[in-house]
């Protein structure tokens, strides 16, 4: 699975992940407090320039942002029809700025840096005894490890349907997929414990 991170060495790439997340949170708070469409418009253009400075390329930008902007356009249109044009413009600029800023953080922060931040954020929860912070990295690794395997299994079950002249249907695919996959759980759990990866007990 390919991440949305893009290689680079610009200002945003050099900024620490934590600083970027704090700045993003501050920016989103500010965007919701500002009501003036003019200021929001300036914010949206600035966010667009920031995102553009990453040089992601038109095709990649389109692929990343199309669904988001479809949703934003739908909400703005809805606001235009039911509320006022001024509010519609505000909503459009505010949501666009947010989408662009968040996409910029995602494009300039590696998955590893993010996992470090998530683990750090989970430390207070560990103190409360709710989770083990180290388990988060392990679980993420497990999920990524098994996505290709489950995709192959899904394909195999589909092919088996077609080979028997049956139409692949959601229900008849999903039941064997779940049972086959979860049957592995015991083996995987034993393998993890045998290697003392979680180092507990």
């Amino acid at each position: 699975m390919k991440t949305l991170y893009v290689d680079g060495s610009g200002f945003l790439h050099r900024l620490s992940a934590r600083a970027k997340l704090v700045l993003l949170a501050a920016a989103s708070l500010a965007l919701f407090l500002i009501q003036s469409p003019l200021v929001l418009g300036v914010g949206a253009v600035a966010s667009g320039l920031l995102f553009g400075s990453l040089r992601i390329g038109w095709r990649q930008t389109w692929l990343r942002l199309r669904v988001l902007f479809l949703t934003i356009a739908a909400v703005a249109l809805f606001t235009l029809v039911f509320n006022s044009p001024v509010e519609a413009v505000s909503v459009f600029f505010r949501l666009s700025a947010l989408a662009l800023l968040a996409s910029a953080v995602t494009a300039t922060t590696t998955t590893g840096d993010f996992i470090t931040e998530v683990t750090f954020a989970a430390l207070p929860l560990e103190k409360l005894g709710l989770v083990k912070a180290a388990d988060i990295g392990l679980s993420i690794g497990l999920v990524l490890r098994f996505i290709p395997e489950i995709l192959l299994r899904h394909q195999a079950i589909r092919d088996a349907h077609i080979a028997r002249g049956l139409r692949p249907r959601t229900l008849s695919i999903i039941v064997p997929l779940i049972i086959l996959t979860l049957k592995n759980a015991d083996e995987i759990a034993s393998a993890i414990d045998a290697r003392a990866i979680r180092a507990q007990k």
């Binding site: 388990d135 497990l142 999920v143 489950i150 779940i178």
Partner: peptide, 14 residues
């Protein structure tokens, strides 16, 4: 338990 962690991770992958 490790088994629960693995079950959750496998289902996330599903």
């Amino acid at each position: 338990p490790t088994r629960d962690l693995v079950l959750a991770a496998l289902f996330a992958a599903i």
